[in-house]
Design a protein around this nucleic acid. Sequence first.
RNA 1: GCCCCCAUCGUCCAGCGGCCUAGGACGCCUCCCUUUCAAGGAGGUAACACGGGUUCGAAUCCCGUUGGGGGUGCCA
Length: 468
Amino acid sequence: MRFAPAPTGYLHLGSARTALFNYLAARSVGGVFLLRVEDTDLERSRPELVDVVYAALEWLGLDWDETPVRQSARLDAHQEAVEDLLARGLAYWSDPVPEGDRERTGGRAYDPADRDRNLGPGPGRAVRFRVDPLAFGAESVGWDDAIRGEISFELANIEDFVVRRADGSPTFFIANALDDAHMRVTDVIRGEDLINVTPKYLLLRSALGVASEDLRFAHLPLIVNEQRKKLSKRRDDVSLLDYRDRGFLSEAMVNYLALLGWGPPDGEEVRFDPLGEFASMFRIEDVGESPAGFDVRKLRHVNAEHIRHLGVAHFAERSRPFFAAVPWAGRYRDETFALVAGDVQTRVETLAEVPEYVDFLFLEDPEIDQASWDAAFAGDAPAWLAATLDELEGADWNSAELYSRTMALAEATGVSRKKFQAPLRVAVTGRRVGPPLFESMVVLGREESFRRIAGALDRVRHAEAAER
RNA sequence: GCCCCCAUCGUCCAGCGGCCUAGGACGCCUCCCUUUCAAGGAGGUAACACGGGUUCGAAUCCCGUUGGGGGUGCCA
């Protein structure tokens, strides 16, 4: 099995899923997982572009066997094959037909009459493969797709396609067919969007004398967006590594990607060792045939599950890079975060959300969210806060004591615990949502907590004064 | 236009002729728990596109219609 991406500067989610399914298929049957970089196009062979592919696969943990094949390194073989086709009359030189002149060719970009003109090389002239029932020995090409069953195409519907461009470079069709044979690929697993190049691939193999009988094809369903369209670079977030930067764990990505078009037979969707566990139960025939909608909500859920499964120390460690990206990065302390990491872990769906959860522990004067303030400080709330301040003056500074004293006070005041803690929370953290309050206050310390409570009380007085 | 593929809850996955009163997951809603929010627990909402066959029996097989998608490049 092989994964054969064209380096485009990022690894597309769909490509990542294709790579994953190739990997799982290979590992499930003890096969070999190969990599081939399809850099036929000069543009695409720049090292940076290629390295991105490797980096992305490594991040996912899809380790490949053997040294990756660079398609550009096989140029001579491709050229030779083109010469061979030419020599045997299976391909011919063809002139492009300008846009305005296509009526005579039935809308085609080439003129089928060139087939018999015996043209030689010339400016702008490409080599086309002659799709010929006589040469192929049949009127149609087809194969038994592992996922979709029998698929076939009438030769009459297949155009003579370019195998060598006017600039002399061989095209994807020839390189692909040839290199798969060269690498002794037995299973071609790729996206559904390549179904219609498969006949050309088969035709070429036949013309080149490469047997295809033992070749298995599996065309995976496309991954589509909310609009049911193929994920596009323009409208969708398609770069795999961007998900890493947005706080998704690679295990979660692997886990979720595997669920697009497939599902484990036992129905247990969330796996903490998805690569290992799925490999043992994966069967390419079980992959579905209808397009799979990419659902970020579910990805987030899977990610959250994986985050919760991490040991607290690992969670803290993997969160660290996300603190570096924040404006107050300089104030961040591992030791401080470690004290609340466990409480944050169950509350986030991505690692990118971590810093905003605990920023108040690091900022000197965290910004107070106005909506939170308005909600928390309505009515008698300022009085409760003042009372809480008094009550906590003599408290031992541990969460159990802070909790029991505050709650007892709520009880005595006849206010629900939820409402009663609101002003305290907003005073201390700036928001009405966050990690457990008393634990946070312990981390902040008595002095700082009091300072913030006093600050909030001041703010109330100012507001009142302003009203008068 | 032409070629090809697809069609079960909003989404993902089960279902491969009777076990389906269609199952699980995400989301959403309700309740419980609760120091906020989460997490956790208990419920609920919601689908076989349509029409013909085949069959004792169809979500499951066949045909058609409709709908969606992909391709139609001297990109891969």
